[in-house]
Design a protein around this nucleic acid. Structure first.
Length: 457
DNA sequence: TTAGGGTTAG
C-alpha cells in the first residue's frame, strides 16, 4: 500500500538532489521508490521539471512532462509555471506564450506566478507595452500582485530603456505602502547604473541604508561594476576592499567583476591572484567564469593556456559560447596571429554561431595593426552588421596609415547612417586633412559632423 | 515554481 508520508519523504529527497543539481540521483530515487511501492505524485514531477528547466533545458523538462502524463498524472498550474519560466529563461519566448494559452484552454486558472512569467516573457522579447497590459490586468483583477510582480515590472522597464518609468513605479509603490525588499533596490540600482544615472543610483543606495536594510553582496557587486564601467577604477577597488573588510562572501559574480577590472587596468598579477583565490575558495566555475579566465590568459599572452582551457571545457561537456570564441579571436589578433584568428572565426561559424560583430571588429583591428589596412577594408565591406566600434576602429587606423581621404569618406558614410563614432577618431580625420593640405575638405567635414549631431545626438 | 549582480572589441 502506498502511504502519503512515503511520497512526501520521496519528494523531500528529490528536492534535495535537485537543489544540488544531482538530477541523475533524483531520477534513480524515483525508480527505487516505485520498486518499493512509493509512487511519485504531481509534486515529484514538478520538482524534476523545475530542475530540468533550470539546469538542463526545456526539452529535457518536456520529456519529464511526457512521463508524468504516461503515469496518469495531470500537470497543474505549478507545472505550467515552471515550464513557462524555463522557456522564458532560455529565450523560447513564443513557447512560453503557447504554454500560457494551453493552460487557459485546459481550464487551469493561471496564478500570480503565471502572470509574472508572462510579463517577464514580454519584456524579454522587447514588448514592454504588452507586459504593461498584463500588469494592469493583474492590478485590476482579483489576482493579488506579489513583490516579484513589482520586481519583474521594474526590472523589465529598466532593461527596455524605461528607467524613468521604473523609478516612478518604485516611488508610487512606496507611497502606497509597499516596503521594497533588498532585491527591488538591487534591480533599480542596477538599472540606474546601466543607464548612466549614477546620481539617482546613489540616492536609492542612500535610501536603502535609511530603510534599515543592509546592502548585500549583490548590491556591492552591482555598484562596483558600475564604477569599473565608468572607468572609476579606484572607487571600484575601494568597494572591493570594503566588501573584504566587512566579510562578505565572494561568489563567481563578484570575482569575475574584479578580475575583469584588473585585466582592463593591465594589473595582470592582481587579476591572477584573484583568480587563484576564486579557485582555492572552491567556487564552481560556470561559462562566464571560464570566459573571464580565458580572457586573463589571452591578455597575459598565454594563448596556449587559453586553448588548453578551451579543450578542457569542451571535454568536460560544458558548451562554450560566443564570448569564449570572441575572446580567443581577439587574443589571437593581439598576438599577431591573424591566420589563426580567421581560422577560429570559421570554426565559430561552423559551430553554428551567428555572425558576430565584435569578433569581426577584433579581426579588422588586428589586420590594421598588422599593417593590412586594405584587407581590413575588404573584410569591412564583406560584413553586413557594423557598429560604432567597427567605424571608429577603421577610421582611426586609416588615419594612422595617413589615408585621410579614405577615413573621411568612411566617416561620412557612418554619419549618414546615424552611427556614433569616437570623438578621437573624428578629430584624427579633421587634423589629418588639415595637416596634409586639405583645410577646405576638413571644414566641409566639420559642418557635416555638426549637422549629424543636430540630427542624431 | 517566479525577480537582481559577473565574461568580448576601438
Amino acid at each position: 500500500m502506498v502511504c502519503r508520508f512515503s511520497t512526501k519523504l520521496l519528494n523531500i529527497c528529490i528536492s534535495s538532489f535537485c537543489k544540488v543539481q544531482q538530477l541523475e540521483k533524483a531520477e534513480a530515487i524515483i525508480i527505487d521508490g516505485i520498486r518499493l511501492g512509493v509512487l511519485p505524485d504531481v509534486v515529484t514531477y514538478n520538482t524534476l521539471i523545475a530542475a530540468y528547466c533550470r539546469f538542463v533545458g526545456v526539452d529535457a523538462a518536456y520529456s519529464v512532462l511526457h512521463r508524468m502524463r504516461e503515469a496518469g498524472i495531470n500537470p497543474n498550474v505549478v507545472t505550467y509555471n515552471s515550464l513557462m519560466a524555463g522557456a522564458t529563461k532560455h529565450c523560447l519566448l513564443s513557447r512560453s506564450l503557447d504554454l500560457f494559452e494551453e493552460m487557459l484552454q485546459k481550464g487551469i486558472p493561471p496564478d500570480v506566478w503565471s502572470y509574472n512569467s508572462l510579463m517577464h516573457c514580454f519584456f524579454k522579447s522587447g514588448q514592454p507595452d504588452e507586459a504593461n497590459r498584463v500588469f494592469e490586468d493583474i492590478i485590476l483583477s482579483n489576482i493579488y500582485p506579489c513583490p516579484v510582480t513589482f520586481n519583474t515590472m521594474i526590472n523589465g522597464l529598466c532593461k527596455n530603456g524605461y528607467t524613468v518609468n521604473a523609478l516612478m513605479l518604485f516611488r508610487n509603490l512606496r507611497r502606497h505602502g509597499f516596503t521594497p525588499p533588498i532585491v527591488t533596490y538591487n534591480i533599480l540600482i542596477n538599472g540606474l547604473c546601466k543607464s548612466g544615472r549614477l546620481g539617482a543610483a546613489r540616492r536609492i543606495l542612500k535610501e536603502l541604508g535609511e530603510s534599515g536594510h543592509m546592502p548585500n553582496a549583490i548590491t556591492y557587486t552591482t555598484v562596483m561594476k558600475c564604477c569599473f564601467r565608468s572607468r572609476q577604477f579606484e572607487q571600484g577597488l575601494e568597494i572591493f576592499s570594503e566588501m573584504k573588510e566587512k566579510g562578505y562572501t565572494f561568489d563567481a559574480f563578484a570575482y569575475c567583476t574584479v578580475i575583469g577590472a584588473f585585466v582592463k587596468m593591465g594589473r595582470i598579477k592582481e587579476a591572477n591572484e584573484c583568480m587563484q583565490r576564486m579557485v582555492s575558495n572552491g567556487i564552481e566555475l560556470d561559462m562566464v567564469s571560464y570566459n573571464t579566465l580565458i580572457n586573463l590568459y589571452c591578455k597575459e599572452g598565454n594563448l596556449e593556456a587559453a586553448f588548453n582551457l578551451l579543450d578542457e571545457i569542451e571535454k568536460g561537456g560544458l558548451e562554450c559560447d560566443k564570448y569564449t570564441h570572441t575572446i580567443l579571436i581577439d587574443g589571437l589578433c593581439k598576438a599577431g596571429n591573424i591566420e589563426g584568428a580567421e581560422h577560429h572565426l570559421k570554426y565559430m561559424s561552423m559551430m553554428g554561431f551567428d555572425s558576430n560583430v565584435v569578433a569581426f571588429n577584433c579581426l579588422i583591428d588586428g589586420l590594421c595593426k598588422a599593417g593590412q589596412v586594405d584587407y581590413a577594408m575588404k573584410v569591412f565591406k564583406s560584413i553586413e552588421l557594423k557598429d560604432s566600434f567597427t567605424y571608429s576602429s577603421l577610421v582611426h587606423n586609416l588615419c594612422k596609415a595617413r589615408r585621410f581621404h579614405s577615413a573621411s569618406k568612411l566617416l561620412r558614410s557612418c554619419l549618414r547612417g546615424g552611427m556614433k563614432i569616437l570623438r578621437s577618431s573624428q578629430r584624427a580625420v579633421l587634423a589629418g586633412l588639415r595637416s596634409s593640405g586639405f583645410p577646405r575638405e576638413a571644414r566641409k567635414l566639420q559642418s557635416k559632423i555638426r549637422l549629424a549631431k543636430i540630427l542624431h545626438y
